[in-house]
Design a binder for these strands. Structure first.
Length: 588
DNA sequence: GCCGTTTTCGGCCCGACTGTTTTCAGTCG
């Protein structure tokens, strides 16, 4: 096992011990051990294990050293397996309900025999939870709300997760000899932040083998429909996937139709109608007129079908420039396509770096060198490190001395020329509840840039929160605003604040706003970007990476930026290193 | 379970908020 896989096991052990009511300091020791493990260089792990020197790492003692060594060598740990078997899985799931922690879950389990969410729901409905000491009417109500939200949210999936499930399916479909074309459609293709189900459009001559393959994919839990033109399956994750089979000459129409959005399709059909045409998932045909010359209509239809092989040709037949899937939300894209005013959208290959990334110095899971190597492997010219500031205790935020040490470490790394990728020294500085920043000005002045973010006091009024963020933006050291709303997709809405006033302040002060590309955030929301950028707001697409793998989250950020009509010019981190170096200091 | 110019036992990172209490426990970031 790799060090981060082992760290994951240690974290799971901590969660399970917590649920069992173990000594909280023992629990913390496992979590701390996981963090300590992540902070070492991967090549050092093998050496430390082989030479029996794991205990030289602070936070790893005799017991953890043995477990880590076992996991590293065998990938197995009997202690972990036994522990896992001894805790009902429903209890772990209950941790996802807001307001429920290990203590309360234990109380519910020990005193009411509740071992999963279904049992909890029943107990709440019967009023048994409110009767428990430590709980009350209000808690009971909140639990029911939390469960209901969870169920409502569970019907959708993060784009990132859906994309990960879709990729091998699409790959598999395309590899089938019967398949002429295959494409994923729906909100996944439009790059929406959450996805309801997966849609695959396939053109094939011989459909039976395709359907058979689709229904027999690994991970399929249930086949809910199986026919000649359509099949539906459900995976263990709850995600549903639909397969639609069409003849090759209908492929472009079906792909467009099932990509949507509904609003876009309605508008486009309307446009077709005004031109005497009828657009559907089957084709583009002359509108059914007064029963005149049916043959002529059919001939025209056949001609259209022959001619239209791609979506671009479909748009052209309606007098439009091609509209990228991300823009098809019925938000003015058809008018823009008519006038030839669609933007040239930013692309993943335009990115040359990113600024909001963490390391093991705070709550990241990869070291500075690992992160830099990963950025370089992505072809980036620069990587910004912005670990948490001191007020984020929970995230191991950096006090001034540790921040200074990190600045020095980054300077040394750059000077060593070990990587071509340049590292910028920044910080993700907490915006304190009154809008002050978490470090003194002279500390902030030692950095290349400062990301300012809200991590506390989410319950402030809209006015308080707006004033707080604006004050932070007006600070002369602020370079960019992190995850503007604090939302977590499918988990919790953002805090209340006035987007307009914050955007105005950012423009006025030359501060960029982040498009946090974490698939769980995608914040600021794409719906705000078009107008804000037109007014001069600059965007930074930041992965908020806590390990090397999540640097790739910029992919989700690029999609969100494209949905926000952003061009390369409007995104700061498409600029080359030289420009960025000059720009960071002068705010722009 | 880890750690030690508090050193082999007895501590172990903070502070706000909420809902439960009648002085605090649990959760969250």
């Amino acid at each position: 096992m790799t060090k981060n896989e082992i760290a994951e096991v240690l974290d799971q052990i901590a969660t399970l011990l917590e649920l069992k009511g173990e000594n909280p300091f023992k629990v913390r020791a496992y979590s701390a051990g996981a963090r300590a493990l992540e902070a070492i260089e991967p090549e050092d792990l093998a050496r430390l294990v082989d030479q029996g020197e794991l205990q030289s790492v602070k936070g790893i003692g005799e017991a953890l050293a043995e477990k880590i060594a076992t996991l590293h060598r065998t990938g197995q740990l009997e202690f972990f397996d036994r522990l896992k078997a001894s805790v009902e899985p429903g209890l772990v799931e209950m941790l996802e309900i807001p307001g429920l922690g290990p203590k309360k879950i234990r109380a519910l389990h020990d005193r009411l025999g509740i071992s999963d969410i279904a049992g909890l729901t029943a107990a709440c409905r019967e009023g048994r939870v409110a009767a428990l000491t430590g709980f009350g009417e209000k808690s009971q109500q909140k639990l029911l709300e939390g469960i209901a939200n969870r169920e409502a949210y569970a019907q959708r999936h993060l784009w990132w997760d859906a994309a990960a499930e879709a990729a091998p399916i699409l790959h598999g479909l395309r590899a089938l000899p019967q398949v002429q074309h295959a494409e994923a459609a729906g909100s996944l293709r439009r790059g929406l932040e959450t996805v309801g189900d997966l849609d695959f459009i396939v053109a094939a001559e011989d459909v039976a083998p395709v359907v058979a393959w689709f229904c027999a994919m690994p991970g399929v839990k249930e086949v809910t429909a199986r026919g000649e033109t359509k099949a539906s399956v459900r995976f263990a994750s709850g995600l549903q996937a639909d397969l639609r089979l069409v003849p090759e000459d209908q492929f472009a129409f079906a792909l467009h139709h099932f990509t949507g959005s509904k609003a876009h399709n309605v508008e486009l059909r309307h446009r077709a109608q005004t031109r005497g045409l009828s657009l559907s998932e089957w084709g583009l045909e002359p509108a059914a007129g007064e029963g005149t010359v049916k043959e002529k209509a059919e001939a025209t239809s056949a001609r259209h079908r022959r001619r239209i092989k791609t979506e671009a040709e479909l748009f052209a037949a309606l007098g439009l420039h091609p509209i990228p899937p991300e823009l098809r939300e019925g938000m003015g894209e058809i008018e823009a396509a008519e006038r030839g005013e669609l933007p040239t959208l930013v692309e993943e290959s335009d990115l040359r770096g990113a600024f909001h990334n963490h390391t093991t110095a705070s709550d990241g899971r990869s070291t500075l060198a690992e992160m830099t190597a990963a950025a370089e492997a992505l072809g980036w010219e620069y990587l910004g490190i912005a670990d948490h500031s001191k007020s984020s205790f929970q995230a191991n935020g950096l006090f001034e001395e540790r921040l200074a040490a990190q600045v020095a470490e980054i300077a040394a790394l750059n000077a060593s020329r070990r990587f071509r990728c340049h590292v910028f020294a920044g910080v993700e500085c907490d915006i304190l509840p009154d809008g002050r920043l978490d470090y003194a000005d002279e500390v902030l002045a030692t950095l290349d840039y400062v990301v300012v973010s809200v991590h506390s006091a989410f319950a402030q009024t809209e006015e308080e929160m707006t004033r707080r963020i604006v004050r932070a933006i007006e600070h002369p050291c602020a370079t960019m605003l992190g995850h503007i709303s604090g939302r977590l997709l499918l988990r919790r809405p953002g805090y209340a604040f006035d987007h307009g006033r914050v955007i105005d302040a950012a423009i006025a002060n030359g501060v960029a706003i982040e498009l946090n590309a974490s698939p769980l955030r995608l914040d600021m929301d794409w719906r705000h970007w078009r107008r804000a950028a037109e007014r001069g707001l600059r965007c930074v697409i930041n992965p908020d990476a806590h390990d090397t793998a999540s640097l790739q989250h910029v992919r989700a950020g690029i999609l969100a930026a494209r949905k926000g009509w952003l061009t390369r010019e409007q995104v700061v981190n498409t600029r080359p290193l030289r420009d960025v170096m000059a720009g960071l200091r002068s705010r722009g």
